[in-house]
Design a protein around this nucleic acid. Structure first.
Lengths: 103, 103
DNA sequence: CTCTTATATTACCATAAGGTTATATAACTG
DNA sequence: CAGTTATATAACCTTATGGTAATATAAGAG
């Protein structure tokens, strides 16, 4: 298939699955329960996420445990970077930096 | 149509057109020349970008001049924010802040 | 072993996206 | 006005995507 990362993220279910995996790793079965998709549907999306390098799998008994692999998101981030100055001037940058410091 | 912003950006031609408009506003004709699409093809994508609020039009004689409207990109940025901590710790934040200062 | 659980793959289908050609519309030009 | 330029819309087609049911595979459990 060889899907572009932007296309991969265009699918709402896939973003949702990433949002779940962002919290903690999950088995396919868990993902099926939390999505409104059939098991093959989930597996299909997981395959696309895998091929995009956004998740990795680990086997535990019969279960396949998926976890997030966020590196490829940097490509999106890099593209956005070209536009970020439109809404974030230097003051904003300082603000958000200080905000992060407080947490 | 009512397309999600992630879907809107999934199309490479549309990202390319935004990349052009990011530099400066352009007429439809100019965009046609710089893309490898027919004029209706370009108009179709422009419509989608318009409906997503990513570009705005201004008429000058028979020409329609399109310019960028980057606000909706914040939604992408906000989603990415949830993942950014994976690769950007506070040191990175300081670095990029200082980098921006130098320019 | 046999059964159950867990997941991936296959086959198939419906829909939507993206492209093009043809056409409508509208505004300059001479 | 008649003709040209600029753009949008309509109609149409092809393909890819995303969904499901059915099936294969593989690993526990008893």
């Amino acid at each position: 298939m060889n899907m572009d990362i932007f296309e991969v993220l265009a699918e709402p279910h896939r973003r949702f699955m990433l949002d779940l995996l962002r919290i903690r790793e999950r088995s396919v079965g868990e993902l099926v329960k939390e999505s409104h998709l059939s098991q093959p549907g989930v597996s299909k999306h997981l395959r696309i996420l895998r091929e995009a390098g956004l998740v990795k799998v680990r086997s535990a008994a019969q279960k396949n445990i998926y976890s997030i692999c966020p590196k490829p998101l940097r490509e999106i981030d890099a593209w956005l970077e070209l536009y970020r100055h439109f809404w974030s001037d230097k003051l904003d940058a300082l603000e958000s930096f200080l905000d992060n410091e407080q947490n």
